[in-house]
Write a protein that binds this DNA or RNA. Sequence first.
DNA 1: AGAATATGTTAGTATGCACTCACTCACAAT
DNA 2: ATTGTGAGTGAGTGCATACTAACATATTCT
Lengths: 202, 202
Amino acid sequence: MLRRKPAQDRKAEIVAAVLLLADRIGPDRLTTNDVAQEVGVTQAAIFRHYPTKAALWAAVGEAIALRLAAAWQEALATGTDPRRRLRALIGAQLQQIATTPALPSILHSRELNVDNAALRDRFRGLVVLFQDHLAATLGDMAARGAMQPSVRPDDAAALLVSLVQGIAIRWSLGSRGFDLVAEGLRLLDVQLDLFAGHQALA
Amino acid sequence: MLRRKPAQDRKAEIVAAVLLLADRIGPDRLTTNDVAQEVGVTQAAIFRHYPTKAALWAAVGEAIALRLAAAWQEALATGTDPRRRLRALIGAQLQQIATTPALPSILHSRELNVDNAALRDRFRGLVVLFQDHLAATLGDMAARGAMQPSVRPDDAAALLVSLVQGIAIRWSLGSRGFDLVAEGLRLLDVQLDLFAGHQALA
DNA sequence: AGAATATGTTAGTATGCACTCACTCACAAT
DNA sequence: ATTGTGAGTGAGTGCATACTAACATATTCT
């Protein structure tokens, strides 16, 4: 018979399994049976820890939200130079996606966006928070003259958010054949040099 | 009893229903029953026209591929000015997304990417084709001095593809509260001015 | 050691899914 | 007007799913 674990540990294992399998199988196709097999217990055991599948997804969402918020806080603690802080923010985001590749598909899954209204609002708040961080840092850069005045700050923020999403998609479609963080930061530097309006070194 | 239609018309109706419902319900959650109700026939009738659900998805993919290719061809016929051609290409792509909002989610759905290998390759080819068009046009722009030499053409193409994906996502999440094509082209102009290295008019 | 508890299992249920089969009848050509 | 064709139906099948209830035992507390 299998080793029994305290509920707290098992719950964490289950959430981890969902994150792993959401990437492999897809968030909207993931079944409680898949999760149970991955964890190594019976399907019924999942329901001892989470009363419904929706509750399980809520726990997964909460775990993601905590991780993201922590990563952003750490990035914001990076010095006072706005360009370095921007790099830290974007780098942290890319790092989160690299370690949890299911993140984008979960964020856009119908599971979260259609079924679970409370969680959807939670994530909307997160996205807004991230964009606020970006906008604030871009404002600092503008104050230092590191931004062409012709580029509106909200447009710049939109371009940066797109950059992250776009490279994450390319990384996924290309079977993760390159270093997401390194390539993302390289592209970010290209874009930031363009924002600054001076030519980068060849 | 319901009006009977020739198979060709009915098949087109079914494909149209899938495109509509894939947006509303999600590609991976769409059932043959949903489709049948939308069309106004019984579930069994769907299987008279398409032997399996996978075959139905293949038809949907084919329809999308034809539309995209046609839109790109039309855009490429736009004059010889590379910047205008780029605007036409991106505008066509945004227009396609605006009229078929399910497009991005279908392109990234597990239905297409996991189950239907043939169709996945078909779409991969489409994406490559689009990027080739972009790269060629960017090359023309560079030849006319409308691109800073510090920006590699493939990086520029990656940034433009990201721009389209990013604004499409924002449009979707924001309940389509703005004109996707107009806003996308506006952002494109901001980015192209940055590529050119001269300030845009305020 | 023995009782209490909580983590697990076995064996279900109801529902929804893709898909099938025997059959009906609307329509078009003769 | 008759008839052949094929679009459409009603009633199913088998399977997967989320979830449940009764029971079992590993672990912990005393």
